[in-house]
């Protein structure tokens, strides 16, 4: 299996506090990798090192290498804007822009100048909505406010918005944690579907969710990578005692 993202000896600091310790991990192309671990274990921080979202925090500092398609994204000449186009992100709380459904999707396409004319833009917006399994629900009200959608629909809109700029990797930070079971199931089905085209990294607190959607699972604790294995192995017979204790609920 080809590695899409290859992280080696990554350390990450918030000021003097070290949030990630010496993480080394390979993320295979077109697979779903889940990050699990207790709150504050660094899994979200780690996710955000993969598209340099942590850059917005002034005191944050990373060392080590993160290679995406063999290129170090922390190299000084990295174009962060281009990186973020390639590595899309979906957040815990759905965060549509205060615009219409159409304009929410079109935003990324517009700012990255990825369309030739109006028809092309419309086609691309439509495709993103289709890919996020939202088209049928919104096709008659593309020009209404995105805030009029339900929570689950808003989250799929955010996924569609991320898909619209044609990324290769999608990072998801607890994408279903605020959703009801049915909306959650739709997101999970979508993740499995998207895997055919994209490499997906998902942070989740819901272990059943990690078990259901991911091919590989990484377990983090106190900023360290405790175990990284095939999901099936993680949930039936993990190598590490700590992993076992965590996934069977022996500590909270």
């Amino acid at each position: 299996m080809e590695s899409k993202i290859s992280i080696s000896n990554l350390n990450f600091y918030y000021g003097k506090e070290q949030a990630l310790h010496d993480i080394t991990l390979e993320i295979p192309e077109r697979q779903v990798v889940a990050f699990i671990g207790p709150s504050g274990c660094g899994k979200s921080t780690f996710l955000r090192t993969l598209n340099r979202m942590n850059d917005t925090i002034p005191i944050a500092k990373a060392d080590g290498t993160v290679l995406i398609d063999g290129k170090d994204i922390y190299a000084p000449n990295t174009d962060v804007v281009a990186l973020r186009r390639k590595v899309g992100m979906v957040f815990q709380k759905s965060n549509p822009f205060p615009k219409s459904i159409f304009e929410n999707i079109a935003y990324g396409i517009r700012i990255n100048r990825m369309y030739e004319n109006k028809a092309d833009l419309e086609q691309k917006v439509g495709k993103a909505l289709h890919d996020a399994a939202l088209w049928d629900e919104v096709k008659d009200r593309l020009n209404t406010s995105a805030f009029g959608l339900s929570g689950g629909q808003q989250q799929r809109l955010c996924i569609a918005r991320a898909l619209a700029v044609q990324p290769e990797v999608i990072l998801m930070d607890e994408p279903a944690s605020a959703l009801d079971p049915i909306a959650t199931q739709k997101i999970e089905e979508l993740i499995v579907e998207l895997k055919k085209q994209y490499t997906i990294v998902i942070v989740t607190h819901n272990m059943q969710q990690a078990a259901r959607v991911s091919d590989r699972t990484a377990f983090f604790m106190l900023g360290k990578l405790v175990e990284y294995n095939a999901t099936q192995k993680m949930f039936t017979n993990p190598d590490e005692r700590l992993t076992e204790d965590y996934i069977t609920g022996r500590f909270g």
Binding site: M53, R84, N95, F97, P98, Y107, I111, C158, V165
Partner: peptide, 27 residues
């Protein structure tokens, strides 16, 4: 304006000034 909205725009590859101009200000 929630930070999450800024982050969403940044994550789409929007430069800071565009985030302020066409996301934060309208919001």
């Amino acid at each position: 304006v929630p930070d999450s909205m800024r982050e969403a725009a940044l994550a789409l590859g929007a430069p800071q000034w565009r985030v302020t101009w066409n996301i934060v200000l309208p919001a």
